[in-house]
Simulated assay, not measured.
Amino acid sequence: MKSYIEIKKNATGQYYFIFRNVRQFVAVSKSFETRNTLNKYLDLFKTNAKTAHVYEGESQDDFPIFQVFNIGLNNYRFQYLPEKSSPLLQSDLFDNRKLCLRFLNELKEQIQTATILDIQ
């Protein structure tokens, strides 16, 4: 199966989505109170992800962005910030920068055509 997006509902009844690639790396969105709100943010994400800049460090005003950061020794993850606020989406933790960036680039290239699976 190619990359896909799962729409899920958490224990508190809020909605979130997960992007999975063919190797099963994942990036998980924040939670949304309604399905309509999730759909709005997912559509914006799908539209803007491919052209969002990638930063390692802080960006002051060039949003939306993907921010790649190091957590401790050889632990990397990325997050997507549609604006200067809390992230919309955050990736798995990777044990090397190269793999983290590879998954990020796959997400950027495949998000617009990813199949959506509604798994509530």
Score class of each variant (00 low, 15 high):
I18K: 07
Q24C: 09
A27L: 03
F25P: 00
F19C: 04
R23I: 05
S31G: 03
S29N: 06
I18S: 10
F25M: 04
L38R: 04
K40P: 01
L42C: 06
R20I: 00
K30V: 09
F17I: 10
K40S: 12
N39R: 09
R20P: 00
Q24E: 15
I18W: 01
V28G: 01
V22N: 07
F19G: 05
I18G: 05
S29I: 15
A27S: 09
Y41G: 00
N21S: 05
V22F: 05
Y15W: 14
T37R: 06
N39V: 06
F19M: 08
Y15I: 08
Q24Y: 13
D43F: 11
D43N: 15
A27N: 02
F17N: 05
N39G: 06
L42G: 06
R35I: 13
N39D: 15
T34A: 04
L44Y: 10
S29H: 05
K40D: 13
R23T: 10
S29A: 13
R23C: 03
L38Y: 09
A27H: 01
F25C: 03
N36Q: 15
T34Y: 03
Y41M: 04
Y16I: 13
T37G: 01
V26A: 14
F19V: 03
Y41C: 04
V26Q: 10
V28P: 00
F17R: 06
L42A: 03
F19P: 01
N21W: 03
N36Y: 01
V22S: 12
V26R: 09
L42P: 04
T37V: 12
V26K: 13
R35Y: 11
V22K: 11
F32H: 12
N39M: 06
N39T: 13
E33M: 03
V28L: 11
F17E: 08
S29E: 04
Y15E: 08
A27D: 02
N21H: 02
L44Q: 11
F32S: 10
Q24M: 14
K40I: 13
F17Y: 11
S31H: 05
N36A: 15
R20F: 11
L42M: 08
F25N: 14
S29C: 12
T37Q: 11
K30E: 09
R35L: 15
V22M: 06
F32W: 11
T34K: 02
V22R: 08
K40C: 07
A27F: 02
V28K: 12
N21R: 02
Y16V: 14
I18D: 07
V28S: 09
Y15C: 07
R23V: 07
F25A: 08
L38T: 07
Y41L: 04
S31Q: 06
N21Q: 04
L38K: 07
T37N: 06
